[in-house]
Design a protein around this nucleic acid. Sequence first.
DNA 1: TTGTATGCGTTATCAC
DNA 2: GTGATAACGCATACAA
Lengths: 348, 348
Amino acid sequence: MATHAARTPAGATIYSVADAAGVSIATVSRVIQGTGAVSERTRTKVLDAIERLDYMPTAAARSLAVRQHEALGLVLPELSGPYFSELLMGFEEAAAEHRLSVVLSLAEHGGTLDADRFARLAATVDGIAVLGGVVDDGALRRIARQKPLLVVAGAETPGVDRLAAENTTSSAALTAHLLDAHGRTRPVFVGDPDIAPDVRQRFEGFRGVLQERGIAVPDPLRGGLREADGVRAAERLLADGMPADAVVCANDEIALALTTRLAGAGVGVPADVAVTGWDDVMAARYVRPGLTTVRQPVRELGGLVARRLHERVTGATGPQDESVLATRVVIRGSCGCPEPGHPDQRAT
Amino acid sequence: MATHAARTPAGATIYSVADAAGVSIATVSRVIQGTGAVSERTRTKVLDAIERLDYMPTAAARSLAVRQHEALGLVLPELSGPYFSELLMGFEEAAAEHRLSVVLSLAEHGGTLDADRFARLAATVDGIAVLGGVVDDGALRRIARQKPLLVVAGAETPGVDRLAAENTTSSAALTAHLLDAHGRTRPVFVGDPDIAPDVRQRFEGFRGVLQERGIAVPDPLRGGLREADGVRAAERLLADGMPADAVVCANDEIALALTTRLAGAGVGVPADVAVTGWDDVMAARYVRPGLTTVRQPVRELGGLVARRLHERVTGATGPQDESVLATRVVIRGSCGCPEPGHPDQRAT
DNA sequence: TTGTATGCGTTATCAC
DNA sequence: GTGATAACGCATACAA
């Protein structure tokens, strides 16, 4: 049965509580916040009234009075894979530690959050974190003038602070591993550098190693970051007569799907072609061969973002930004290394 | 550089805009909301002033005035696996369609959200959805008296509306499939029925089929829902001399880890023992044999929850709740069925 | 079409 | 220790 709003038509306010307790609203406010001195006697009277009336303060009124929303905003793209979930968890946890609530906005599939929704979000929070590429630069800068704003794993935008996990170096390490440890000579990168800043950085790491060694850098196989894109990349490779003996993929979904599609065509991994991914999703541990990939401290990143934002909001710090968190290459069998005890049972 | 708060020390308000445009705040409010009639001339004047001053309305003030937060709350446990992410996405999308923002609270690992955080969340939204078991009944009922509250996939609580995906029937179907199609005679359930209402329902479906056929119902192998719990379950089975030829797991993580641990001990799936999971995670499609599991319309569920909540908030509907969404058994190789073209490339 | 005035439910600054 | 009372920034009924 619909029960609410039956007992208290308009909801109890601080006034009704004050009335019921026979005190002023100032006193009620004092006992609620534990601020100022209140006699034990009146204190219990007030608490009693609150209990009886099921009083629940209206956050909006408080926000208006203290001129703070006590909330942080977070804008993410689709929540696919463990990356965004982890980021969100870290963010939420850190926010909660500061008694801040988190307001979440998700961009529609693959696109960017429309300016109107973004503005409305901004109006309800004290600071905002945005995943790179999910909001266009104009809207970004417009909001940045008004409230603390952080871009996560995004491109560098003048006047906007940035936080990210390291990409270029680990991509270079991965690529070098393929060439040096496994003697691969025709590596190719799968992923569109223009789709996101971190994909670009991963490609840059790849490109750098090839150039160092005087290997011609093949055009990346451009496409999205989902399984279907991995299948497509595999088919393009197949159609071109497999012009590669190593494939550095922008993420695990692509790598997994590509590997399977290749296997379906009789191309073996890692025998015929080595494959690597990015993110270390659960499936990377369970497939055979295990997928060599890169693990990012995503949760920590999320926490760091929330804390930084809070610092900005409270004005507790200067502009010491542009932090980059270290990542870790996880070696399994898909690059050609001997498979370590499979699967790696340490759940992420 | 920290740029905000430099240009507009206290932030522009509707008053400063009215001043700058040479009109009253009522007019400003009108052009902002598109309510009432405003001459084109003053309209542009106002829009101009807004632009110049970088005016951004304060949501709290509006909320106070309209007596609505225009926001929905969502309480979830840890965001592991695709289940909660999907739910969240469906919820957010539907909320956005009604121009409602979503504020999210995550319970600390495995525990319940503390009453204080829950109350504070409730104070900032118009309605709340809570995942079953994440908030204790007392707090639940207390809030339910004040605001629309929905429990997702939870136990039935008097006075609290509930929404869920179907569990019992599909669990029964899965179990019957194992017994009838594959001639298994010693099935066992892995998961703790007391850990969550849907696990209980899955066990009930399992139990029902066994009882129907006069098979003694073995105690469930109790444990959590993570990979480590699957490993533990496998080891208990191994230690007991494999008293089962079919294992119905409460979710895919458990099933995957258990299968791998069993394989490590020389027990083959599905040859020696059939295994099934729940949720259809990505890894379920990529392992060999593919994992037979159950797919739930989680995203739709999330959307339904948000819409229902919005109906309650706007008072647009009566108490026609207790909806249950249908699920679908996904047959792959781990139950003993011939593997269909692997993997099933239709990304979820 | 536009302006005035009041209310929304808190917090906080004063007096007492 | 307690109580008036003025913000806080917006929406809106009512006048003009």
